[in-house]
Design a protein around this nucleic acid. Structure first.
Lengths: 193, 193
DNA sequence: AGAAACCGTTGACAAATGTCAACGGTTTTT
DNA sequence: AAAAACCGTTGACATTTGTCAACGGTTTCT
């Protein structure tokens, strides 16, 4: 089960992992299974674990005053589920993270992660690159959100995130884009005319 | 002129800098002055420098098909002006960065920065924390943008970014929030009734 | 197998936001 | 000192998007 994680790290860091390093990784990351709809993190709790998704799909969302959900992230295989603000500041999270499909994770605490980053250069490098990629993706998403109409946002998203479109229902995609499911439905059924 | 940067690094990293380290920093960061409206980065160019703002105010924005500007970041003293995607991927930038006020910067290339991070632990630590802070801020802004009405977004922004409100004209704030200047004007003049 | 929940769609209408034009009061430039 | 550019505001109107309700076709649960 850890094979996928080890492949991910060594590929990302572009550094091979020694067998000692691999053993340490296997010993540190704990497997965890979540059934569909089960919580990984609930609003108000501190996010203690980051989870590497080996198999499955998850979502991160907030719930507003009126009970409406707002999807802030969607995760599939090879993504990391985590509320960074909560886990680094040790503050209660504003978000929920739950399993959209039955999911297999490898979880790790922040302290363990910092320890591994000290002991395994490839791990530190992988985290750096992941941060980099994340920063870039956030920037793009933000820019698209404030600059484009709903229709363009959807087109951009669909062009770059085909996997998500196939994997999650439309109403989650709509929420991720900051629009309602009805609006997305109308956008899609006009775009093809 | 470098004193402010050195204070920033040591405070951020919570580590003192040796005098050798300070000397290296002074030798590496180049001072640069920009007049109001002068470009730091133009769309289509690769972003070669990151700039620490010692004094002044800047903005980062894209320009759409219709010639409209969309503000993606506002910067003042102690902020870093940089297009991360362009400078790390070495791709032409989608953005412009220019001086809103006469500005004094300390600039550094990416290669120099990587070198300093290797040689000066406090520098590496500062960058890590800055990345952390950035990731958290991006997450919050994104979440607010997709979840809240224009009015709530403005209120949240005003509550946490008083300095920006005082420093930049309303039409830039509006663009930063993803709304038009007219809408922001109306929001402000109803909110107080 | 039957009931329930889920999902995408559509219609009618409401609310939020954008567009365009104009204005007066600044500030900046010449 | 005059001219130009900039800035915030307002009105009238257009467009986009949201809200609510209903429907039929799934899929899921029991």
């Amino acid at each position: 089960m850890h094979a996928k994680l080890i492949a991910y790290i060594s590929q990302y860091a572009n550094l091979p992992l020694t067998s000692e390093e691999q053993a340490l990784i296997v010993a540190t990351f704990q497997p965890k299974k979540l059934r569909k709809k089960q919580y990984f993190l609930q609003e108000g709790d501190v996010c203690k674990y980051a989870g590497f998704i080996v198999k499955g799909a998850m979502r991160q969302y907030s719930v507003d005053d009126k009970g409406a959900e707002h999807i802030v992230h969607l995760f599939i295989e090879n993504y990391w589920a985590n509320d960074r603000e909560s886990s680094t500041m040790l503050t209660p999270s504003f978000y929920n993270i739950d399993a959209w499909e039955d999911t297999e994770l490898l979880i790790i605490t922040r302290a363990e992660m910092l320890d591994l980053m000290n002991k395994i250069p490839a791990m530190a490098q992988m985290i750096r690159l992941m941060d980099e990629r994340n920063a870039i993706a956030s920037q793009r998403r933000l820019s698209s959100t404030i600059s484009n109409t709903a229709e363009k946002r959807y087109e951009e998203f669909a062009a770059h995130h085909q996997q998500f479109i196939q994997r999650f229902p439309q109403h989650l995609i709509a929420s991720y884009l900051g629009i309602t499911k009805e609006t997305l439905s109308r956008i899609r059924n006009q775009g093809t005319k």
